[in-house]
């Protein structure tokens, strides 16, 4: 009987140790593009993300039409003309935290890591490498990242007439408050 209990405890321990995952359904993605004529900004605060600490895998998914713009017309055009959100509703990132062993989400501190993976957007998959920062404090686990995507890399065409209004480079800021995923 004692042996049996030990095995159960071992299984639970193994399970716990291996399956430590963090998630958020309210990850905030900010979109910022500056051009000579116009500044375009949008926020998506309903992106989903999961980290599996044991493997270092990290994933994000965001619905394109959940990006809220300052001007309603910009939002319409973003979905209709650029992202084609009916055809490609989601933007997904699947990657790995490079030096996940450095990351200890149970101990207070700031950790700088590199995340490498595939960004799938507008029907195009491109590998990207993003520096990120994890901050663990009394309130929990927070993550920040900033990177730039080029519209031309994702087959998002900007017509000549609006070249001065819309920049090819878009800065993306990511901000997440992670929670422990209880399975």
């Amino acid at each position: 009987m004692k042996k049996f209990k030990f095995i159960i405890a071992l299984i639970l321990f193994v399970q716990f140790g291996h399956a430590q995952k963090y998630f958020s359904k309210n990850a905030v993605l900010k979109f910022h593009s500056d051009s000579p004529m116009e500044k375009i900004e949008a926020v998506n605060s309903t992106a989903s993300t999961v980290i599996d600490i044991s493997s270092g895998k990290i994933e994000f998914a965001a619905l394109n039409n959940a990006f809220v713009f300052e001007k309603a017309l910009m939002q319409d055009h973003f979905n209709e003309n650029y992202m084609e959100s009916t055809k490609f509703p989601k933007t997904v990132f699947k990657g790995t935290i490079q030096d996940v062993s450095k990351l200890n989400l149970t101990a207070t501190g700031t950790y700088k890591v590199m995340i490498q993976g595939d960004l799938m957007m507008h029907g195009v998959t491109k590998s990207v490498s993003v520096p990120a920062e994890f901050v663990v404090d009394s309130k929990g686990v927070h993550a920040n990242a900033k990177f730039t995507v080029k519209c031309s890399d994702f087959d998002i065409k900007i017509p000549a007439v609006v070249k001065n209004n819309i920049s090819n480079d878009v800065d993306i800021t990511v901000k997440v408050d992670y929670n422990l995923l209880n399975l």
Binding site: V50, E59, L63, A66, D76
Partner: peptide
Amino acid sequence: IAQEDLLSLLGKDANTYLTTA
């Protein structure tokens, strides 16, 4: 299980989206 799509662990998206344009 760990090899599966991590995001599927979060269940279905519970938001409603309006059709535009």
